[in-house]
Design a protein around this nucleic acid. Structure first.
Length: 461
RNA sequence: UCCCCAGUAGCUCAGUUGGCAGAGCGAGUGGCUGUUAACCACUAAGUCCGCGGUUCGAGUCCGUGCUGGGGAGCCA
């Protein structure tokens, strides 16, 4: 008999004589005459209730069927006389597929702390919260691709292993096939020459430079893949491995860039609100009561667009006492970012035109000669969700900026070539996928929106 | 990496001026009921995070390491 997924069974509009479902037992309540099983198969948040008449032949395995066990149930889908659910299945045949030892199974039918569930990351998707979370993660990823496709962007697969030694985007993970332990004994050059690629290799910290090359050919591209940072940052908003979305557009300026970023965030948010209603409501109920209201603001309200200079003035004239003083030329601290989007504007804020001294070499120098066409999107709870810029397309200025930054232009010959042959204004940004998920679910630790998180000193599963 | 807080039963936690190790939930057993994180009774369950120190005596005080949480820096 063909299996029916629980989500389909619950959406039936009339009763079914015979149906088969398979899944994992969430709870079992025994009575003398009946047993009630709550069955979940991951297809949706809701369970389906199974009623087993203990006088029937199907009770054979019943004692071994307990929380966590995998079972197959055949029976009639009928309207439930009880409260709390529309449909239920009257079991005619039950099969225990895989039992779960109750003395050892760590998931109980009660709420567990996030910290505990993190230690059993292989089982946590079987809880309501994490099942919902990873369905939302999947649906969000789907929307990224469909959004860009609708807008005429091409998906670009940039390399995971890179040979460029520096992009100014943080510490790198070394990739090597040399035996462990011996690397330290050799000189750095010797290592690289004898290594797999014959030169130093690292895991990517960004696909931006490569995306720029392709934007200057396919016009509009985006990357969506894993990114690695070897920084020893121990915060609820950082991970060593995370996923980043990086669109890049040719013939575009900073306004186009902000327009795209705002439209993308709104579309992804609306998509999750429409397609993960039950799952999202769980977060609104148990994780953050303000969530649904905040999501409506993100989906509907126009985002603030604030020049860096104006942001400095707002912060300086505010009555709030900051630990770090604000002055032109300094980067904003977390407290400043939070004040702007959470207290002052109470919605997402783009800050743009930052001083060139605090931004990387590739950002386009403005006519004032002191600021660059950079933009950050600050959102409540998360802080910096997006960082992007218009890219410097003028060869002589870019060469000068590379020199200023203390880097060799030979390393970037291919990057500079693009400015030599048909150079054009272009712009793009990086969106942290996990930070988006934190924003949309209210989950406050990045470790809880990644199936198997990698952070300093943690490499389990 | 820096600052603050915590680590006690499977889970969540209490444990007084240093003096016999506790509760709720979960699990097991029995009962009861078309049950809804069911209910009632009983039972089992501990390297008090590790190491070292102070003391007649340490879950409790001191040092140190590890782990977790919050904040900061770096950033997405």
């Amino acid at each position: 008999m063909k299996r029916t997924r629980v989500i389909e069974a619950l959406n039936k509009d009339k009763k079914v004589e015979r149906i088969m479902v398979k899944g994992w037992v969430r709870t079992k309540r025994d009575a003398k005459e009946f047993s009630f099983i709550e069955l979940n198969d991951g297809s949706c948040l809701k369970n389906i209730q199974i009623i087993i008449d203990q006088n029937q032949d199907c009770r054979e395995d019943l004692k071994l069927i307990s929380t966590g066990a995998a079972v197959s149930i055949e029976g009639a889908l009928v309207q439930s006389p009880g409260k709390g659910q529309k449909w239920e299945i009257h079991a005619a045949r039950i099969e225990l597929i895989g039992e779960a030892d109750q003395n050892a199974y760590p998931l109980q039918k009660k709420r567990h702390s996030d910290e505990f569930l993190r230690t059993i990351a292989h089982l946590r998707p079987r809880t309501n919260k994490y099942g919902a979370l990873f369905r939302i993660r999947s649906e969000s990823a789907f929307k990224v691709h469909s959004y860009f496709r609708e807008k005429g962007f091409f998906n670009l697969h940039t390399p995971i292993i890179t040979g460029s030694d520096c992009e100014g985007a943080g510490e790198l993970f070394r990739v090597t096939t040399l035996p462990a332990g011996k690397t330290k004994q050799n000189e750095k050059q010797n290592i690289s020459e004898n290594d797999f690629f014959g030169k130093e290799a690292n895991l990517t910290v960004s696909g931006q430079l490569e995306a720029e090359l392709f934007a200057c050919a396919l016009d509009r591209v985006y990357t969506f893949g894993p990114t690695f940072r070897a920084e020893n940052s121990n915060t609820p908003r950082h991970a060593a491995e995370f996923w980043m979305i990086e669109p890049e557009m040719a013939f575009a300026d900073l306004t186009d860039n902000m327009d795209l970023a705002e439209d993308l965030i709104k579309n992804m948010t609306i998509h999750v609100m429409e397609n993960c209603k039950d799952d999202l409501e769980l977060f609104g109920k148990f994780v953050d009561k303000k969530l649904m209201r905040d999501l409506e603001i993100i989906a509907e309200k126009e985002y603030v667009r604030l020049p860096y200079q104006k942001a400095v003035e707002i912060l300086q004239s505010s009555n709030k006492k900051f630990e770090f003083p604000v002055a032109f030329g300094t980067d904003f601290q977390t407290e400043h970012e939070r004040f702007l989007c959470e207290n002052h504007f109470k919605k997402p804020v783009f800050v743009f035109d930052y001083p060139k001294s605090i931004k990387p070499f590739y950002m386009r120098l403005n006519d004032d000669n002191s600021t660059v066409g950079a933009m950050d999107l600050l959102v409540p709870r998360v802080g910096e969700l997006i960082g992007g810029s218009r890219r410097e397309e003028r060869l002589n200025i870019l060469e000068h900026r590379i020199k200023e930054a203390g880097m060799k232009k030979e390393t970037y010959w291919w990057y500079l070539d693009i400015r030599r042959f048909g150079s054009t204004p272009h712009a793009g940004f990086g969106l942290g996928f996990e930070r988006f998920l934190m924003m949309i679910t209210g989950v406050s630790n990045i470790r809880d929106v990644i199936p198997f998180p990698r952070t300093p000193r943690h490499l389990e599963f």
